[in-house]
Design a binder for these strands. Sequence first.
DNA 1: GTCCTGAGCA
DNA 2: TGCTCAGGAC
Length: 238
Amino acid sequence: MKYGESVFVIEKEIISKDEIAFLIPQIYKLLHVRFGHRHWWPGDTRDEIMIGAILTQNTAWTNVEKAIKNLKKVDCLSLDRLASTSRSELEKMIRPSGYFRQKAERLMNFARIVLDYPDGPDAFFHHSQNLDEIRDRLLNINGVGPETADSILLYAASFPSFVIDAYTFRIFTRMALYDGKKDYMKLQKLITDNLELDLDLYRDYHAQLVELGKRYCRNRRPVCDTCPLNELCPKKGA
DNA sequence: GTCCTGAGCA
DNA sequence: TGCTCAGGAC
């Protein structure tokens, strides 16, 4: 490297509002070109998506798939069937997803709360309410944190609530768009402030970030040379 | 700090 | 075969 060249390579300390406003939609465009439209969430029904959202907490999706398969086998991929299963049976079936005792308890508790909601689950998620109202109701359920709540809202209940996860923190930190301290609402606001409010865009953007985080922007040994965001990333190769 | 598994790698 | 690792909520 020639003397002085590093000036252009060194990570920028400050990124202007205009740069952020350009980069956040641009990142999506590049990911979409590389990966194509993702059909997310993997799951057919609202119940299945909600169950998957709880099972995948701090867990790789491949492990969740095994649990889902076990539940499907005995037709337990719905809240009402779940609520009428014995705890020990449920624990056995969801064991591959990890934290099986915690998750069994959380699933049964979640199912009961949603099923027992006045006028039922449809009323719980009815679009006549505002997003924050339902979000708060979800967050008040034991075992439902911000990521799980937003996953349920976005993919199961069709509310435009942007999902932030470990991949999102990692990618946006490496892209120098975020300061690195894990503040869920702060990163969510940064992204949504610079993105068109659109259900399908929110769904696909998060899906694209998951794909990037798994295949390129990995925690260890990131694959920067062929990363679709390579030319935009100040950390490439680092 | 605690709760857990399966993939990946030596 | 035995280790480390990745991954949310409380």
